[in-house]
Simulated scan of single mutants.
Amino acid sequence: MVLLIASAPKRTFHYPNSPVDGEALVSTQPLNTPPAPATAMPPPAAASAQPELVVKTATVTRTFSEAAQSLGITAQMTKTLADAFASKIDFQRDIEPGDKISFVFKDTGANAQSGSDNRRPVAAKISLGAVSHEIFLYKALGGKAFYYSKDGTPAKPSFSRYPVAFSRISSRFSSHRLDPVTHQWQSHEGVDLAAPIGTPVHATANGIVKFAGTQTGYGRIIIVSNQPPYSTRFAHLSRFAKGIHAGSKVRRNQVIGYVGKTGWATGPHLHYEVRVDHVATNPLTVALPQHHRLRGADREHFAEQAEERMALL
Score class of each variant (00 low, 15 high):
R172P: 00
A265Y: 15
E23Y: 00
A58T: 02
P43F: 14
I126E: 05
S48R: 00
R177P: 00
I244M: 07
V250Q: 10
L193A: 04
T28N: 13
P228F: 13
F85H: 11
A24Q: 15
S70M: 03
N111L: 02
N118L: 10
G219Q: 06
G190R: 14
E304S: 05
G243A: 07
N17S: 10
P229I: 06
G115S: 10
A140G: 08
E189F: 00
P283N: 07
V54Y: 12
L4C: 02
N32P: 00
Y147L: 05
P34I: 06
A24S: 12
Q69C: 09
H183D: 08
Y138A: 08
T281N: 14
A86T: 02
V122Q: 13
F85R: 07
I5N: 09
A38P: 01
R168M: 05
I244R: 05
Y147D: 11
T199C: 14
I73M: 12
H14Y: 13
F103T: 09
T57L: 09
K156V: 01
Q92A: 15
A306K: 11
K88G: 00
P200R: 05
R239D: 11
V20M: 14
A123G: 14
A287D: 08
N32Y: 07
L294N: 12
A194E: 09
H271T: 03
V54Q: 13
A280S: 12
K150Q: 08
S70E: 12
R93G: 03
R299I: 04
A45E: 03
D83Y: 15
R299S: 06
E273G: 14
E134N: 11
P154A: 03
A8Q: 10
F91L: 01
Q113R: 10
K144Q: 12
F240G: 04
A124H: 15
W264Q: 09
T28P: 00
V55T: 15
A86C: 01
R161D: 03
Q305M: 07
P157R: 07
A112K: 04
P30S: 04
L193R: 04
L141Y: 14
A82T: 08
H188T: 02
T78E: 12
A68E: 09
S87C: 01
A205E: 06
M310C: 01
L128Y: 13
P9S: 07
Y230A: 02
P196N: 09
K125T: 08
Q184H: 13
G143D: 12
A47P: 02
V259Q: 13
V54K: 15
R120M: 10
G217V: 11
L128W: 14
Y230L: 02
Y258H: 14
P180Y: 10
A47K: 01
P97N: 01
V122I: 11
V60C: 06
W185Q: 14
L294F: 11
